[in-house]
Computed example of a mutant assay.
Amino acid sequence: MSQRFEQDDFKDDMFKERRRNPLVLFGAAATAGVLCAGLLAFKQGNPGLSQKMMRARVAFQAITVGLMAGSTGLYALTSAQGSQPK
């Protein structure tokens, strides 16, 4: 396989996932945003705010993992129901 084919295949898969799980992308973006805010607070010497941001990051990360697991389970259930003969 050529590297070009693998890159195109990866992009197609990524777009399918975005349509199927849009909340996961929002959760990942929120996690990254809170992480950056926490690192910025740490760099500015505000340990209290930095600690709160890191705790919020863990919460956002847990929510994102829950969304991933839930959407994967929902997708598995709907695809399994669609493949069974009636």
Rank of each mutant, 00 (worst) to 15 (best):
L49F: 05
G45W: 02
G82H: 10
M53I: 01
R20P: 06
T78Y: 06
G73V: 05
G38Y: 02
V24D: 03
F42Q: 00
G66E: 02
A30Y: 06
P85G: 14
P85M: 15
S50N: 07
S71T: 04
L35M: 13
V65P: 00
G66V: 01
N21E: 07
A32V: 09
M53V: 00
D12T: 13
R18Y: 05
A41V: 06
K11E: 09
L74D: 14
G48E: 06
T64F: 02
S50I: 07
T78A: 11
L67H: 02
Q44F: 07
M53K: 06
F10L: 14
A80S: 14
V24I: 08
K11T: 07
G73N: 04
F15N: 07
G38F: 03
A76V: 11
T31A: 05
R18G: 07
M54F: 15
G45H: 00
T31L: 00
G27D: 06
Q7A: 01
Q81N: 15
K86F: 14
M54A: 11
L49P: 00
Q81V: 10
T72Q: 05
M68W: 01
L39Q: 02
A41C: 05
F60K: 03
K43H: 00
F60P: 03
Q61C: 07
P85K: 15
Q61S: 10
M53P: 03
V65A: 11
Q3P: 10
F42L: 11
Q3I: 15
M14G: 01
C36E: 12
A69I: 15
V65E: 11
D9E: 13
A76S: 09
F15W: 12
L39F: 09
L35Y: 10
S71V: 03
I63N: 08
S50P: 05
L49Y: 00
D12P: 00
F10K: 10
M68Y: 04
A37Q: 09
L49E: 08
L67R: 01
M54W: 07
R57T: 06
A56W: 09
M14W: 09
S2G: 15
N46V: 04
L23T: 08
Y75I: 11
D9G: 03
S83M: 12
I63M: 03
L35P: 01
Q84L: 14
G73K: 05
N46A: 06
R19S: 14
L25I: 03
Q51G: 00
P22Y: 01
F42A: 08
G45S: 00
M54P: 02
